[in-house]
Design a protein around this nucleic acid. Structure first.
Lengths: 111, 111
DNA sequence: CCATATACCTTGTTAATCGATGTATTATAC
DNA sequence: GTATAATACATCGATTAACAAGGTATATGG
């Protein structure tokens, strides 16, 4: 049983990305807002800093999963992000991956 | 390496370590056996290679979480690992961390 | 005798995340 | 009124988990 193509892209990895996509599915948000929203939504279990979120947003936008729309707000500029159809697909993928992983681990823990 | 570096050591991270500790809680095993056991226990959802497992076993042993006992088996030597009390404590910690993370993520996904 | 499975090991690389830092503006507190 | 905190963007270096790929050696079934 050799010769198996495994595309293991890392375990549990990608949680911040998954949460970004999931939260943006509900409503558009700007980066700084997302940082707070993740902490709030997870009751501070997951609290990625701006150094995690901003680069992720840029990568996701470059990848076509998000659309970015700068909007002046007061004297500053907020960059609002919305999910593209590609982003929705990506969300489903990651969500699925996570569920499978979580189920597998839980299975072992409660064995 | 600090032994009490709790906090945000990365999300989802530590799944292979968690599974090693959990499986060794059931019965002692040798390295190669653990590699197969993880795949079987998770239905091939999680399949860390030997390049992941062996270094982890060494680190855990060095950290006092595991005790290693080499035993001749046929013409080779198998190194059997057992949990120490420290290892049990570590298992509970990681297990707890994982549960909290899984609960938090699931919460957001199903919101 | 040769391929495969067993059983150990290490090393180099990538990718995710962290922590710190930087710039600028606006709201607040004193 | 001016220090300070909060908002809002950004990047950069360090750390670390995990992976892929290799290496050694013995046992076993064709």
């Amino acid at each position: 049983m050799a010769e198996e193509k495994r595309g293991n892209a890392g375990f549990g990895a990608g949680v911040p990305e998954l949460l970004i996509l999931r939260l943006l599915q509900e409503r558009e948000m700007y980066g700084y807002e997302i940082v707070q929203a993740i902490g709030r939504a997870t009751q501070d279990v997951v609290t990625p800093g701006e150094g995690v979120i901003y680069p992720l947003l840029h990568a996701l936008e470059k990848d076509g999963a998000l659309r970015a729309e700068p909007r002046p707000a007061g004297g500053r500029t907020r960059i609002y992000y919305t999910l593209t159809s590609r982003g929705v697909r990506r969300l489903f993928e990651l969500s699925d991956d996570w569920s499978r992983l979580a189920r597998a681990v839980q299975l072992v823990l409660r064995a």
